[in-house]
Computed example of a mutant assay.
Amino acid sequence: MMPAGSSEQPVAVRLTVNGRAHLLEVSAGETLLGMLRDRLGLTGSKEACVEGECGACTVLVDGGPAASCILAAGSMNGRTVHTVEGLAGAGELTSLQQAFVNHAAVQCGYCTPGVLIVLTALLAEVPQPTEDEVRRALAGNICRCTGYQQIVEAALDAATAVSS
């Protein structure tokens, strides 16, 4: 039997995910990514490196991009999380998502959720980013298919669409 207060004891976590409040009991080793995918059925964020290096699992935590594969689910109490599933409202694509479609910025799509999240955060902070700012924002997202050019063009196009 585990002693009281042991890190193995489940922890109750209240958080908001994509605008919906949740109360979950999480275990000590559970990650935010595991909680999102396994408990909430939000499978857009992908598991790849499990080291916070590739960006496939990136979500917004309190408005900032974070690698959900290395964040403890228990540390999310009182936090607000947005996943790729929460970007579009009422079935309409965001200007960034539409720009990805327009520029064919998706190939296999595995990295796309994390890329969209990072660029969403960038555009919220810097509505008219330069190409260099977009590329710097993408530095933590590995894409093995596209070469990034179409992704960068889509981000710049989305910035233009928002300012029009």
Rank of each mutant, 00 (worst) to 15 (best):
E85G: 10
G74H: 10
M76E: 08
K46E: 06
G52I: 01
S75T: 15
C69H: 01
V84Y: 02
S68D: 10
H82N: 14
A73Y: 09
G86I: 10
L60F: 04
A67G: 00
T83F: 12
G44Y: 03
G63L: 00
G78D: 10
E53D: 15
N77I: 04
S45D: 03
G63T: 03
T80E: 15
E51Y: 10
L60T: 00
E53P: 02
H82L: 15
A48M: 13
G86P: 08
D62A: 03
C49S: 11
V50R: 14
A56I: 00
A66E: 10
D62F: 02
G63E: 05
G78S: 13
V59L: 03
V84A: 14
D62G: 01
G64N: 12
L71K: 12
G55P: 03
L60P: 08
E47Y: 09
M76P: 09
L87A: 11
A56R: 06
A72G: 14
E47L: 13
S75L: 15
A73P: 07
V81G: 11
V84H: 06
K46A: 03
A66L: 15
A48Q: 13
A48W: 13
G86H: 07
E53V: 14
E53T: 14
S68W: 05
A56E: 12
E47F: 12
V59G: 01
C57L: 08
T80A: 13
V84T: 10
L87G: 07
